[in-house]
């Protein structure tokens, strides 16, 4: 009995008294944009897939398999680590939701493999992920930061920064190709899944960056100077690795230069989110990729109302009048669908 007396009472999550001015907004954003890959009919792309060249198929599948590994890392290590080390019930809830979204992304990539590949090809791709040196270097580097026992402001900031690096920059070597094809009207259902994932990651990258900015503000000047230098070094190391990885992934389809530009562009977005100096000059991204991002939803399924051009369906409560209409002799089934 006496052992319980010194325990801090455990509190409940009070959404009426937010811990900050933004976490609730992010949580609501996530619940409104929640989607599942089963809602997008991937089989629509099956014929297009067969019409792609060998090199095109190779790049597409290996790009997405690499992303699967990175999303698995975020869902399994990144988000749980940040959640564990971040104060506040609402903030923890937001981070846990983000972790769940990462797992949904990983499942999406796996469903793509299942839809388009034979079991043998599938096994080959998962083995490739386990042995691809640049991918494993990137994962190992990020994992080491997440597992670093330093939980000072600086240590936490570093963990948040590598999480943002994944979300905002290091995924983009993989995102390039599906966007490039979707921008030409090829593999559009899978392209829609990629777009949904990109929108999720874009918001995750902003949320964690806001937490990181708070930690940065709490550091003294010397720590901030150290943090900036560490950021530059880390960015250069991971950028060089991305360049090498892109050369492996994209040499066969002749797009290496465009992918590098896309990665630099996104590293600049990362710097903006973190309120740090941009590492690269202003550049335009490939217009076909931009078009792939602009692609409006292809899933015209009224009842699920998902896809990147839809918001979640809105619901209106039943009223007296609905019941009266139902009993006044009309076909009940009509009353059910009349609210469109």
């Amino acid at each position: 009995m006496s052992t319980t007396t010194h325990r801090t009472p455990f509190s409940a999550t009070n959404w009426s008294e937010p811990e900050d001015g933004f976490s609730t907004t992010f949580y609501e954003k996530y619940t409104s944009q929640l989607w599942f890959p089963e809602e997008i009919p991937l089989s629509n792309d099956a014929l297009v897939w067969k019409a792609l060249g060998d090199e095109e198929r190779w790049t597409y599948m290996h790009a997405s398999a690499g992303l699967n590994a990175l999303d698995t890392l975020q869902g399994e290590v990144g988000m749980p680590t940040l959640r564990h080390l971040t104060e506040g019930h609402i903030r923890k809830a937001v981070l846990q939701f983000q972790g769940m979204m990462e797992d949904i992304h990983a499942r999406s990539y796996s469903l793509m493999n299942k839809t388009f590949l034979t079991s043998n090809e599938e096994r080959g791709i998962f083995e490739w992920v386990r042995t691809q040196p640049h991918l494993q270097f990137k994962i190992g580097f990020v994992q080491d930061v997440f597992n670093d026992p330093d939980v000072s402001n600086l240590g936490l900031w570093k963990k948040m920064v590598v999480s943002c690096m994944l979300e905002t920059a290091l995924f983009y070597s993989g995102f390039f190709y599906p966007l490039y094809l979707a921008g030409q009207g090829r593999m559009v259902a899978a392209g829609e899944i990629f777009n949904l994932i990109i929108l999720d990651e874009a918001v995750h990258g902003v949320y964690v960056a806001m937490l990181a900015q708070e930690k940065f503000e709490e550091m003294d000047e010397a720590e901030q100077a150290y943090a900036r230098a560490w950021y530059s070094r880390t960015l250069q190391t991971l950028y060089r690795n991305e360049v090498a990885y892109s050369e492996v992934l994209y040499a066969g389809v002749g797009l290496v230069a465009d992918v590098k530009r896309f990665i630099r562009f996104n590293f600049n977005v990362l710097a903006d989110n973190l309120n740090l100096d941009r590492a690269f000059d202003d550049e335009e991204i490939n217009p076909i990729v931009r078009n792939g991002i602009r692609t409006n939803g292809t899933t015209h399924d009224f009842f699920s109302a998902k896809g990147n051009s839809y918001s979640k369906i809105s619901v209106e409560p039943l009223a007296e009048a609905d019941v009266e209409a139902l009993w006044s002799g009309g076909f009940p089934i009509m009353a059910g669908v009349a609210n469109d």
């Binding site: 874009a202 902003v206 602009r294 409006n296 990147n308």
Partner: peptide, 9 residues
């Protein structure tokens, strides 16, 4: 207006 290019349209 400042936004994020990810949002397309």
């Amino acid at each position: 207006s400042s936004g994020s290019f990810h949002w397309g349209a």
